[in-house]
Amino acid sequence: MRSPGRRWTVSALYDIGRVITGCSSEVRRRVRQTRTRPLAENFNTWSEVQLGRVSGKSALAKSFRYAADPPSRSS
């Protein structure tokens, strides 16, 4: 599997955001579902593999686990 690479993923997300700026909420939702979700899924798969390669007690492992299952945030 190709590594998504942080910059590539973040850059792609920002590119999508620029494209949908000013669009209706329905269009933004649809674009996010079709273009952003696959990027997030690829990143999650990649980060699961990386988690198995680092010490379970490291800050990096903690960050991977947080990204995979963030705590609920109340508004």
Rank of each mutant, 00 (worst) to 15 (best):
P4W: 06
P4S: 14
G5S: 08
R7V: 05
W8L: 10
V10Y: 01
V10W: 06
V10I: 11
S11M: 00
A12N: 14
Y14C: 14
Y14V: 15
D15F: 08
D15K: 01
D15A: 10
G17N: 05
G17F: 00
G17M: 11
G17E: 06
R18L: 14
R18D: 15
V19N: 03
V19W: 03
I20T: 15
I20L: 06
T21I: 01
G22E: 03
C23K: 05
C23Y: 08
C23A: 02
S24T: 15
E26Y: 03
E26M: 04
E26P: 01
E26G: 10
V27D: 04
V27L: 06
R29C: 12
R29L: 03
V31S: 09
R32T: 00
R32M: 04
Q33I: 02
Q33W: 01
Q33V: 00
T34C: 00
T34V: 05
T34F: 04
R35Q: 12
T36N: 11
R37F: 03
R37N: 02
P38F: 04
P38K: 05
A40E: 13
A40W: 13
A40P: 10
E41G: 05
E41L: 11
N42E: 15
N42V: 14
N44P: 00
N44R: 15
W46S: 13
S47Q: 12
E48S: 15
E48T: 13
E48F: 03
V49H: 13
L51Q: 13
G52R: 14
G52H: 11
G52Q: 13
G52S: 14
G52I: 14
R53F: 11
R53C: 14
S55A: 15
S55M: 09
G56L: 09
K57V: 15
S58R: 01
S58I: 14
A59E: 11
L60N: 09
A61V: 13
S63M: 06
S63E: 07
S63H: 10
F64N: 00
F64C: 05
R65P: 09
R65N: 02
R65G: 03
R65F: 06
R65W: 02
A68P: 00
D69S: 10
D69H: 09
D69P: 08
P71W: 00
S72N: 10
R73F: 03
S74G: 00
S74Y: 01
S74Q: 07
S74I: 06
S75F: 08
